[in-house]
Design a protein around this nucleic acid. Sequence first.
DNA 1: TTGTACGCGTTATCAG
DNA 2: CTGATAACGCGTACAA
Lengths: 332, 332
Amino acid sequence: MATIYDVARHAEVSVATVSRVLNGSSVDPAMAERVTQAVTALRYRPNLVARNLRTRRTRLWAVIISDVRNPFFTDMVRGIEDVASAEGYSVVLCNSDEDAAKEADYVDVALAERMAGVILSPSSGRTTHINSLVGAGCPVVLVDRELGGVRADAVLTDNEQGAALATRHLVEQGFERIACVTGPQEYSTAAQRLRGYRAALAEAGRDEDGSLVRFADFREPGGHAAMTSLLDSPMRPDAVFVANNLMTIGVLRCLAEHALSVPADVGVVGFDELPWAEFARPTITTVGQPTYDEGRAAAEALARRIGSPDTEPTRTVLSTSLHVRESSLRER
Amino acid sequence: MATIYDVARHAEVSVATVSRVLNGSSVDPAMAERVTQAVTALRYRPNLVARNLRTRRTRLWAVIISDVRNPFFTDMVRGIEDVASAEGYSVVLCNSDEDAAKEADYVDVALAERMAGVILSPSSGRTTHINSLVGAGCPVVLVDRELGGVRADAVLTDNEQGAALATRHLVEQGFERIACVTGPQEYSTAAQRLRGYRAALAEAGRDEDGSLVRFADFREPGGHAAMTSLLDSPMRPDAVFVANNLMTIGVLRCLAEHALSVPADVGVVGFDELPWAEFARPTITTVGQPTYDEGRAAAEALARRIGSPDTEPTRTVLSTSLHVRESSLRER
DNA sequence: TTGTACGCGTTATCAG
DNA sequence: CTGATAACGCGTACAA
């Protein structure tokens, strides 16, 4: 593979001149022409590894997401990519698969490869590897989940508002015993969505003693198990608010297995949009997040952070919206 | 950020010794101990950019997929990741978004960053940028789609077999006018699935004059438009084989809009598994691909290619399987 | 086994 | 504006 020296020799100029042509400094037009000729003739491609070493920076952003198969994250990536390419960065995606160890590995790689910045949706409450990233001066933006004790920008959705929206809707529909299946307590999203659920019930003057709350794992089997447990409980619910998309699938599967009809026997509202929400029968009521805009916001925050590393961390909170569909409508 | 020189000074050894400790060469235990102490004390992290430059290689694989929101590709990524990490590589995902220009950009980055290898699901019939990658000596494996004139390993599924399976099933169910919505003609997958459809019809002794075939774009709106066109045609079909997952969604939406019931009015079989195939009402019959194994196979091919760059390109073809569900069952 | 010194391919500095 | 040359941080002959 040709180097800048080969190009210089071929064009009969110095390597400095070649470098200048490549980077847009002002050079004599005739020389520049010879250089570009040589570049195409030799099929020269600048070695970014060498450039990165010399300039001590990269044009690469790492986006470490906790689950590539969750449409919530992949939708967000689109927003990130659009901003990144406008800012002149390339995006590489890393899938931590909800595994803290894999996440730590990718954080290591991002640091060791001297990536220009990292957008991360944390896969656990562990913060040491993230703090070492921040401590090393790598620009970091957290998305979706908040992490106590990490000084980094964060882009979040108003989980409490969304959960309250969902729960209030179920109350208004006349459901009596509204359950909540939320995620692991150490995730800020799980805690906030639970809080929104409780706030809406309190607002309606209802007692909530915790017997209708289940903590699961944000994955499908967890949702299934939680719903099973709820159905087995003495206070059998007639509606359920499920705090993320994958668990909603588990809940629906469980209800189907018990031959319970939705919403006649049990009303359902899920957090996160489902790409096929309108396809299921009944169609599924969901709390939607502005995923694309969330991606954009995260990318913009990262760009700002790179531009001014020493400003205070920002915290951006986006609003959710309720998409009412059949699964939560009380038949009269 | 600390360099290897800082560590050497702190441990009172030479940089060579530090490097040896880091890379597992044999050094005096006492010295090694001092080095590791210094490493932790200084929070030293090897600079992979420098290492990559020096060794002229990387431990990164680029996986360039045509659509991060298509579960087919993200499922495959899991298989790739598992093999990659076992082989000591990190995987970075690049989303070309079915856009040949973005794909070319990522290919450029992979080449310029001297990535160890590339797994690519082509986004178009264009081959020049891919050939320049191959020509530059970068190990490349193509997945899902075949590309004429590119000397690279390929991991594919038996599209013709899968399409025939689907079509034969519709024939056996007694459907009379079986349509086919396939993808752009320049994609090998689209052509092969169409061929399988035709083969199965011929096998059943049926004429097929092309009036029930539509070429769409492998995306949802394309599927919708194709189905609309089929419903408007004189030979209105009573069943349809749809050649990928996203178009299947478009077809289903179109049928719902026309208040046609599936499978009573129109039977449906889709290519590619849908994560919610069992959730829709009716449940959707699909031709499933072994996505995880396909990912593994691609990664294994890449590892082999890196190990022996000059062997002949291989071509791995995996089998599909038909998942019969309600959407294709003729009611009697 | 250990240390010295060179080179990987760029960009940046400094004379000219 | 151009060219020679010193870094960037690391691995590895080579010599000790």
